[in-house]
Amino acid sequence: MPPAPPPSPPPLRVLTFLHSHEPGGVERIALRLVRRWRADGLDAPLFLGRADGAMATDVGAGLAAVMPRCRWPGIVHWETLWMIATLPRVIRSLRPDLLFCAGNSYAVVAVAMKLILGRHCPPVVAKISNDLDRRDTRGWQRWFYRRWLRVQGRLIDHFTGMETPMRAEIAEATGVSAERITIIPDPALSEALIDRLRASPEPARVGPGRRFVAIGRLAAQKNIALMLDAFERGSGPDDRLTLIGDGPDRAALEARAQRLGIATRVAFLGYQPDPALRLPDHDVLLLSSDFEGVPAVVLEALAADRAIVATRCSRSMGALLQEGALGTLVPVGDVAALAAAIAAARPGTQAAAASLAQARRFTIEAAAGRYWATFARMARETAA
């Protein structure tokens, strides 16, 4: 009688934890990954510290999540501490095989789980979603930040990066070996979105000017103030700039546009669902960030076949834009260089075939399975 086949391993359960549905690139991609994993029949529970946020009605719509009860109206100001206080109970209840830390801002929660739960904490896979060099910070801040990254390297089990140059960046910053780093191109796009953006007809022109657009949270990291200053210097009288996104700096930025005399040529649209779909209505994407990882909006602009002007805000930007073949890169914080790039920007100059090939590397169809394979490998190594 032939021996019985070995029993199948139990299904893998991976818990993703997020603060809320508040708009953010890390959160948007994490919600899309969870949705995709569930559509593929995988066990992917989601923890949310609170239900608030505009993404509850678009990318997060109908996505069931575990949420602790909270009656504190000001919890938004303490959301990380709230998550650290409430997540251990959820982990003990759900007993996930692995925790997915979706971005840099959640690393403190991941480290706290390791310290609080000890040997009962599941392995943690942490996605590095932002620049680790952080040259925008003061020397003493960078000193502390580098030591914080070393702490992560000692306690977090595995890291994922979003583009090839991040492998060396993660290894240098955290001190981990290459075996603890996996590069998975950031799943900011889908095949359907790429096809839709490429099929969008060119909108009718209503004037001779160029149509610039920026998409992102109106917060210090994005340095929209620099963009406004550069736009005032480098744009022509018929050029227009549309800012899609909201955030704490909006009122100050609107006042700055007034002071610069460009308020009639700058439109603040606020948060918009599916902002990538607005790209075909414009000619040139602007990105003025002080630091990023692999900016989703740049991937979306590649998919939409739009010209790109961006700061060199991470080690990955050169690879992403093929060292200038797919867009213009300027130094971080250099208003003169950004203004010159704005003045020189020309609609319709994107390399269509090359930008499409680059965009197709960064789809959720390509990445979702690679993430899950990484999780499965980590679970096997832990069990061995």
Rank of each mutant, 00 (worst) to 15 (best):
M1K: 06
M1F: 05
A4V: 08
P7R: 07
S8H: 09
R13Y: 06
H21N: 13
G24K: 02
L31H: 03
L33F: 05
V34K: 00
A39F: 00
L42A: 04
D43M: 00
P45R: 02
F47E: 00
A56V: 09
T57L: 11
V76P: 10
I84S: 06
V90K: 04
I91T: 09
L98H: 04
C101R: 02
Y106I: 06
A112V: 04
L115R: 14
G118V: 10
H120D: 14
V125I: 15
T137S: 11
W140E: 07
Q152A: 08
H158A: 08
G161Y: 03
M166K: 02
A173R: 11
T174W: 08
T174R: 07
S177H: 13
A192W: 06
L193Y: 11
D195K: 14
L197P: 06
L197S: 04
S200P: 12
S200F: 12
R205A: 12
V206D: 11
V206R: 10
A214R: 00
I224S: 00
G234L: 02
P237Q: 09
L241V: 08
L241C: 09
G247H: 14
R259N: 14
G261L: 13
I262D: 07
T264L: 11
Y271Q: 15
P273E: 14
L277G: 05
P280W: 05
D283I: 04
L286H: 01
S289F: 01
F291L: 05
F291Y: 13
E292P: 07
E292G: 06
L299H: 03
E300Q: 13
A301I: 00
T311E: 01
S314L: 03
S316E: 02
Q322A: 13
A325G: 01
L329M: 09
L329A: 02
A337C: 09
A352D: 14
Q358T: 15
Q358M: 15
Y371K: 05
R377G: 12
